[in-house]
Design a protein around this nucleic acid. Structure first.
Lengths: 130, 130
DNA sequence: TATCATATTGATAATTGTTACTATTATTAA
DNA sequence: TTAATAATAGTAACAATTATCAATATGATA
């Protein structure tokens, strides 16, 4: 792949993600950054998100419901998706990377990564329901 | 929700999935069933897949690459997705449901399910590469 | 068995999320 | 300061999925 050139749009996307604890969609990022860059294009956001994700500088989260989300925190962690409000939260949990070993036991191929999503009802929605 | 009425299309989709070990997409199911039901509609396939999935009679697999896939085997198991040929395989592995407990420890909401996908290179692709 | 209410369908249009294209602009090395 | 090319904005195209709606099939009831 060709050498990277600087782009303020890409930097803006990266630093927007870096200081967010939620996990915005491409469209959320686009809308937010358009305030500072009024003629930012949605294509540019998608292009850079997939580039940054390929470079390992951000992570793509596919939830199975709605659009993909993106995470500026690339350290190993997993996510909880509320089936009620659809918010995505980081989970602060022990390392479970050993499940790759467990999965490898009766398997012929080579496993080198995994994604886990946990589903349920978040605290907020639990409180609202009663 | 209103009471279900029988439909041969829905039964066909269910039994098609029941006797397949791979994990076909909506479109694959549609193409295959059109041989027996030439005027089956793709919308009918999608409608029934999401209905059956809501009823828990089949499972939807979101891989993060390409369209969703569907699994007639609803017993607890996980999947391996080859990042080379994109095939989806069942993994025969020990139960790891306890990771829901692990995840619940520092979390306030209520976790009631989880999905894990494992990624890597399958046996076939490994052999082809060398 | 005929009738009725309604769940389901096929056909198609609409929507959503994402990627591709292209002329123009920005970046970087010489 | 020029030249090569990566990146952009704007827009069109695309793929996957959902919605709409008139016609049909199902199943309960008379």
């Amino acid at each position: 792949m060709p050498p990277l050139k600087y782009s303020k749009q890409r930097e803006a996307i990266k630093s927007f993600l870096a200081c967010r604890l939620d996990h915005p969609t491409a469209d959320t990022i686009y809308s937010a950054l358009r305030e500072e860059y009024p003629n930012l294009s949605l294509g540019t956001v998608y292009r850079n998100l997939s580039l940054l994700s390929d470079l390992g500088e951000i992570t793509k989260i596919t939830t199975g419901e709605g659009p993909d989300r993106f995470d500026g925190n690339t350290s190993r962690h997993h996510h909880f998706i509320c089936t009620c409000c659809h918010q995505v939260n980081d989970l602060d949990m022990e390392n479970i990377d050993f499940i790759m070993e467990t999965a490898s036991k009766n398997f012929d191929g080579h496993i080198d990564s995994y994604f886990v999503n946990f589903y349920g009802i978040c605290k907020n929605c639990l409180e609202k329901k009663q």
